[in-house]
Amino acid sequence: MRAQRSHYRLFLAACAVALLLALLPLPTWLAVVKPMGLALVLCYFALEVPEVAGLGHAFVLGLAADLLYGELLGEHALRMVVIVYLTLRFRHRLRFFPIWQQAGAIFALLLNDRVLELWIRMLGGAPWPPAAFWLAPVAGLLLWPWLFILLDGLRLRRRVSRERRSA
């Protein structure tokens, strides 16, 4: 029970950081990394601690992102729900992939996410986006192993320190 609460706290903190980082002004060539932060964090938790990253959470966090970025309300919410659903659905396969193969699967997920986003925006009358739009999944692919190691490290360190305290 306590482990779950601690995971939950880490989950919320990671999501908050991801949401905040996406607001930082970056040079244009770096900005392609940004759209993927929240999606990657949600993917990680859906894979490793599915108890905290349910569809409901994905929806609420997506709504928060929509409000924060002034996006069409519901756009992020829909995309995050789809990402988390797919991750949970294929969780047992994905978890036993080696990390590079996992990154490949994440890439496919993010590409699907981009297609979904494009579809939503085109329905809203937006024009075809610039080529850099499609670079975001690539950035996600490159980022995934590092994010995975970072979050795993944080999670396990918490567990160790908790066990030490209770011992």
């Binding site: 569809l55 929806f59 069409l72 309300l73 939503i120």
Partner: peptide, 13 residues
């Protein structure tokens, strides 16, 4: 959830 999201988007339009 998808239905709610889509309804929100339509309302926001």
């Amino acid at each position: 959830l998808l239905a709610v999201a889509i309804m929100l988007m339509l309302a926001d339009r």
